[in-house]
Nucleic acid binder design. Structure first.
Length: 260
DNA sequence: ATGACAAACTTTGTTTGA
Protein backbone atom coordinates (compact mmCIF):
# COMPACT_ATOMS: atom_id res chain seq x y z
CA UNK A 1 0.00 0.00 0.00
CA UNK A 2 1.01 3.61 -0.60
CA UNK A 3 1.05 6.27 2.09
CA UNK A 4 1.80 9.83 0.99
CA UNK A 5 2.38 13.21 2.61
CA UNK A 6 1.89 16.53 0.83
CA UNK A 7 1.83 20.11 2.04
CA UNK A 8 -0.71 21.49 -0.45
CA UNK A 9 -0.39 25.16 0.60
CA UNK A 10 -4.11 25.93 0.55
CA UNK A 11 -6.75 23.32 -0.33
CA UNK A 12 -9.06 25.77 -2.14
CA UNK A 13 -6.25 26.86 -4.45
CA UNK A 14 -5.01 23.28 -4.90
CA UNK A 15 -8.17 21.17 -5.26
CA UNK A 16 -7.73 20.65 -9.01
CA UNK A 17 -4.08 19.63 -8.58
CA UNK A 18 -4.99 17.41 -5.65
CA UNK A 19 -7.64 15.51 -7.62
CA UNK A 20 -5.28 15.10 -10.59
CA UNK A 21 -2.57 13.79 -8.25
CA UNK A 22 -4.96 11.39 -6.46
CA UNK A 23 -5.96 10.07 -9.88
CA UNK A 24 -2.37 9.54 -11.03
CA UNK A 25 -0.57 8.51 -7.84
CA UNK A 26 -3.53 6.80 -6.18
CA UNK A 27 -2.24 6.71 -2.58
CA UNK A 28 -4.14 4.49 -0.16
CA UNK A 29 -3.67 7.08 2.56
CA UNK A 30 -2.75 10.74 2.00
CA UNK A 31 -1.62 13.14 4.73
CA UNK A 32 -2.23 16.78 3.77
CA UNK A 33 -0.84 19.87 5.48
CA UNK A 34 -1.53 23.60 5.27
CA UNK A 35 -5.09 23.13 4.09
CA UNK A 36 -5.65 26.75 5.27
CA UNK A 37 -9.34 26.08 5.70
CA UNK A 38 -11.89 25.44 8.38
CA UNK A 39 -13.46 21.95 8.32
CA UNK A 40 -16.72 23.27 6.80
CA UNK A 41 -14.81 24.94 3.94
CA UNK A 42 -12.87 21.82 2.94
CA UNK A 43 -14.00 20.52 -0.49
CA UNK A 44 -14.62 17.00 0.83
CA UNK A 45 -17.32 15.98 -1.64
CA UNK A 46 -15.03 16.15 -4.71
CA UNK A 47 -12.51 13.93 -2.92
CA UNK A 48 -15.18 11.56 -1.64
CA UNK A 49 -16.45 11.15 -5.21
CA UNK A 50 -13.02 9.72 -6.01
CA UNK A 51 -13.50 7.03 -3.40
CA UNK A 52 -11.69 8.59 -0.47
CA UNK A 53 -12.75 8.92 3.13
CA UNK A 54 -11.95 12.46 4.39
CA UNK A 55 -11.01 13.59 7.90
CA UNK A 56 -9.93 17.17 8.57
CA UNK A 57 -8.55 19.20 11.44
CA UNK A 58 -8.84 22.69 10.03
CA UNK A 59 -8.25 26.26 11.12
CA UNK A 60 -9.23 29.64 9.69
CA UNK A 61 -6.66 31.09 7.29
CA UNK A 62 -3.57 29.03 7.97
CA UNK A 63 -2.24 25.67 9.22
CA UNK A 64 -4.75 22.80 9.10
CA UNK A 65 -4.20 19.10 8.32
CA UNK A 66 -6.25 16.32 6.74
CA UNK A 67 -6.23 12.55 6.23
CA UNK A 68 -7.62 10.96 3.06
CA UNK A 69 -7.97 7.18 2.85
CA UNK A 70 -9.43 4.53 0.56
CA UNK A 71 -10.57 2.53 3.60
CA UNK A 72 -12.45 3.97 6.54
CA UNK A 73 -10.37 4.63 9.66
CA UNK A 74 -11.00 2.66 12.83
CA UNK A 75 -10.35 5.76 14.90
CA UNK A 76 -9.37 9.43 14.39
CA UNK A 77 -7.69 11.77 16.88
CA UNK A 78 -7.23 15.53 16.44
CA UNK A 79 -4.47 17.68 17.93
CA UNK A 80 -1.08 16.88 19.46
CA UNK A 81 -1.36 16.17 23.21
CA UNK A 82 0.76 17.99 25.77
CA UNK A 83 -0.41 21.62 25.70
CA UNK A 84 -4.02 22.58 26.38
CA UNK A 85 -3.24 26.20 25.42
CA UNK A 86 -2.13 25.27 21.87
CA UNK A 87 -4.93 26.24 19.47
CA UNK A 88 -3.02 25.64 16.21
CA UNK A 89 -4.29 22.77 14.04
CA UNK A 90 -1.13 20.88 13.17
CA UNK A 91 -1.76 17.22 13.97
CA UNK A 92 -4.30 14.54 13.11
CA UNK A 93 -3.84 10.79 13.47
CA UNK A 94 -5.82 7.82 12.28
CA UNK A 95 -5.80 4.07 12.84
CA UNK A 96 -6.43 2.06 9.66
CA UNK A 97 -7.01 -1.63 9.05
CA UNK A 98 -4.55 -3.52 6.81
CA UNK A 99 -3.89 -7.17 5.98
CA UNK A 100 -0.95 -6.95 8.40
CA UNK A 101 -3.08 -5.56 11.21
CA UNK A 102 -3.94 -2.00 12.24
CA UNK A 103 -1.50 0.81 11.47
CA UNK A 104 -1.43 4.31 12.93
CA UNK A 105 -0.78 7.28 10.63
CA UNK A 106 0.17 10.59 12.24
CA UNK A 107 -0.14 13.56 9.88
CA UNK A 108 1.80 16.59 11.11
CA UNK A 109 2.62 20.16 10.22
CA UNK A 110 5.53 21.03 12.48
CA UNK A 111 5.91 24.75 13.29
CA UNK A 112 8.37 26.64 11.07
CA UNK A 113 9.94 28.48 14.01
CA UNK A 114 11.17 31.62 12.24
CA UNK A 115 12.09 34.24 13.26
CA UNK A 116 14.18 32.47 15.90
CA UNK A 117 14.37 35.47 18.24
CA UNK A 118 10.60 35.40 18.78
CA UNK A 119 8.24 33.10 20.69
CA UNK A 120 7.86 31.09 17.47
CA UNK A 121 11.12 29.22 17.94
CA UNK A 122 10.52 27.96 21.51
CA UNK A 123 7.04 26.95 20.30
CA UNK A 124 8.66 24.82 17.59
CA UNK A 125 11.06 23.17 20.05
CA UNK A 126 8.33 22.45 22.61
CA UNK A 127 6.13 21.06 19.79
CA UNK A 128 8.97 18.70 18.80
CA UNK A 129 9.25 17.53 22.42
CA UNK A 130 5.50 16.86 22.50
CA UNK A 131 5.88 14.85 19.27
CA UNK A 132 8.71 12.92 20.92
CA UNK A 133 6.39 12.05 23.82
CA UNK A 134 3.66 10.93 21.38
CA UNK A 135 6.15 8.65 19.60
CA UNK A 136 7.67 7.30 22.82
CA UNK A 137 4.26 6.29 24.14
CA UNK A 138 3.41 4.37 20.98
CA UNK A 139 6.85 2.76 20.77
CA UNK A 140 6.40 1.41 24.29
CA UNK A 141 3.22 -0.29 23.03
CA UNK A 142 5.11 -1.61 19.96
CA UNK A 143 2.55 -0.02 17.63
CA UNK A 144 3.02 0.01 13.88
CA UNK A 145 3.01 3.70 12.99
CA UNK A 146 4.31 6.39 10.64
CA UNK A 147 4.73 10.07 11.38
CA UNK A 148 4.33 11.76 8.00
CA UNK A 149 4.31 15.43 7.21
CA UNK A 150 6.01 18.77 6.83
CA UNK A 151 8.61 18.65 9.61
CA UNK A 152 10.14 22.03 8.74
CA UNK A 153 13.50 20.36 9.45
CA UNK A 154 16.39 20.11 6.97
CA UNK A 155 18.08 16.97 8.37
CA UNK A 156 21.62 17.44 7.00
CA UNK A 157 23.76 19.57 4.65
CA UNK A 158 22.99 17.01 1.93
CA UNK A 159 19.34 18.01 2.06
CA UNK A 160 19.79 21.65 1.02
CA UNK A 161 21.28 23.38 -2.01
CA UNK A 162 23.20 26.03 -0.05
CA UNK A 163 23.80 25.01 3.60
CA UNK A 164 25.63 28.26 4.39
CA UNK A 165 22.54 30.29 3.52
CA UNK A 166 20.52 28.36 6.09
CA UNK A 167 22.90 28.71 9.03
CA UNK A 168 20.94 30.02 12.00
CA UNK A 169 17.56 29.40 10.34
CA UNK A 170 14.92 27.64 12.44
CA UNK A 171 14.86 24.74 9.93
CA UNK A 172 18.59 24.13 10.25
CA UNK A 173 19.69 25.23 13.73
CA UNK A 174 21.63 22.87 16.03
CA UNK A 175 18.79 22.78 18.56
CA UNK A 176 16.35 21.82 15.77
CA UNK A 177 18.72 19.07 14.62
CA UNK A 178 19.09 17.88 18.21
CA UNK A 179 15.32 17.48 18.62
CA UNK A 180 15.05 15.71 15.23
CA UNK A 181 17.89 13.36 16.24
CA UNK A 182 16.09 12.70 19.54
CA UNK A 183 13.18 11.39 17.48
CA UNK A 184 15.45 9.16 15.39
CA UNK A 185 17.26 7.94 18.50
CA UNK A 186 13.97 6.64 19.84
CA UNK A 187 14.33 4.05 17.09
CA UNK A 188 12.40 5.69 14.25
CA UNK A 189 13.52 5.24 10.65
CA UNK A 190 13.55 8.17 8.23
CA UNK A 191 12.09 6.40 5.22
CA UNK A 192 13.61 8.39 2.36
CA UNK A 193 17.19 8.16 3.68
CA UNK A 194 16.71 4.46 4.40
CA UNK A 195 15.91 3.93 0.72
CA UNK A 196 17.93 6.55 -1.15
CA UNK A 197 21.43 7.80 -0.32
CA UNK A 198 21.61 10.40 -3.10
CA UNK A 199 22.21 13.94 -1.84
CA UNK A 200 20.18 16.96 -2.92
CA UNK A 201 16.78 15.33 -3.29
CA UNK A 202 14.28 18.00 -2.36
CA UNK A 203 10.61 18.23 -1.37
CA UNK A 204 10.27 22.05 -1.33
CA UNK A 205 11.28 24.81 -3.71
CA UNK A 206 10.53 28.44 -2.90
CA UNK A 207 8.20 30.29 -5.29
CA UNK A 208 10.76 33.10 -5.37
CA UNK A 209 14.03 33.63 -7.24
CA UNK A 210 13.42 30.83 -9.76
CA UNK A 211 14.22 28.27 -7.07
CA UNK A 212 12.59 25.35 -8.90
CA UNK A 213 14.29 26.08 -12.22
CA UNK A 214 17.70 26.29 -10.53
CA UNK A 215 16.94 23.31 -8.25
CA UNK A 216 17.52 25.43 -5.15
CA UNK A 217 15.44 23.28 -2.82
CA UNK A 218 15.30 21.77 0.64
CA UNK A 219 14.10 18.38 1.90
CA UNK A 220 11.76 19.03 4.82
CA UNK A 221 8.84 16.61 4.26
CA UNK A 222 9.52 13.30 5.93
CA UNK A 223 8.13 9.91 6.94
CA UNK A 224 9.38 8.53 10.27
CA UNK A 225 8.60 4.86 10.80
CA UNK A 226 8.30 2.79 13.95
CA UNK A 227 10.37 -0.45 13.89
CA UNK A 228 7.28 -2.52 13.06
CA UNK A 229 6.49 -0.16 10.16
CA UNK A 230 10.12 -0.05 9.00
CA UNK A 231 10.02 -3.85 8.71
CA UNK A 232 7.22 -3.40 6.15
CA UNK A 233 8.95 -0.59 4.19
CA UNK A 234 9.34 -1.42 0.51
CA UNK A 235 10.39 1.95 -0.97
CA UNK A 236 10.18 5.72 -0.66
CA UNK A 237 10.21 8.34 -3.39
CA UNK A 238 9.55 12.05 -3.96
CA UNK A 239 7.02 13.01 -6.65
CA UNK A 240 8.84 16.18 -7.70
CA UNK A 241 7.11 16.42 -11.12
CA UNK A 242 4.06 17.80 -9.34
CA UNK A 243 6.06 20.99 -8.69
CA UNK A 244 5.99 21.71 -12.45
CA UNK A 245 2.20 21.60 -12.82
CA UNK A 246 0.16 24.76 -13.32
CA UNK A 247 -0.40 26.68 -10.08
CA UNK A 248 1.65 24.30 -7.92
CA UNK A 249 2.17 24.06 -4.19
CA UNK A 250 5.73 24.92 -3.16
CA UNK A 251 5.96 21.39 -1.65
CA UNK A 252 5.66 18.05 -3.49
CA UNK A 253 4.35 14.67 -2.30
CA UNK A 254 6.62 12.15 -0.55
CA UNK A 255 5.40 8.56 -0.88
CA UNK A 256 6.23 5.34 0.97
CA UNK A 257 5.23 1.89 -0.17
CA UNK A 258 4.49 -0.67 2.54
CA UNK A 259 4.30 -4.44 2.13
CA UNK A 260 0.94 -5.33 3.61
C1' DA B 1 20.42 41.72 5.11
C1' DT B 2 16.30 39.81 3.64
C1' DG B 3 11.45 38.77 1.46
C1' DA B 4 11.95 39.13 -5.66
C1' DC B 5 6.04 34.66 -4.66
C1' DA B 6 1.70 32.80 -3.26
C1' DA B 7 -2.59 32.15 -0.40
C1' DA B 8 -6.07 33.73 2.59
C1' DC B 9 -8.31 37.27 5.39
C1' DT B 10 -7.65 41.42 7.97
C1' DT B 11 -9.46 42.45 1.15
C1' DT B 12 -6.86 47.16 -3.22
C1' DG B 13 -3.34 46.28 2.03
C1' DT B 14 -1.76 42.80 5.75
C1' DT B 15 -0.19 38.45 7.70
C1' DT B 16 2.03 34.20 7.16
C1' DG B 17 5.12 31.04 5.26
C1' DA B 18 10.30 29.02 4.43
Amino acid sequence: MKIATWNVNGIKARIDNLCKWLEESSPDIACLQEIKSVDEGFPASRIEEMGYHVETHGQKGFNGVALLSKVDPIEISRGLPGDDQDVQSRFISGIYPTNSGPITVGCLYLPNGNPVNTEKYPYKISWMRRLNTWAKQRLSLEQTFVLAGDFNVIPTSEDVHDPAAWQGDALFRPETHREFQELLHLGLTEAFRACDSRPHQYSFWDYQRGARQQNHGIRIDHCLLSPQMADLLHSCHIESYVRDWERPSDHVPVVIKIDT
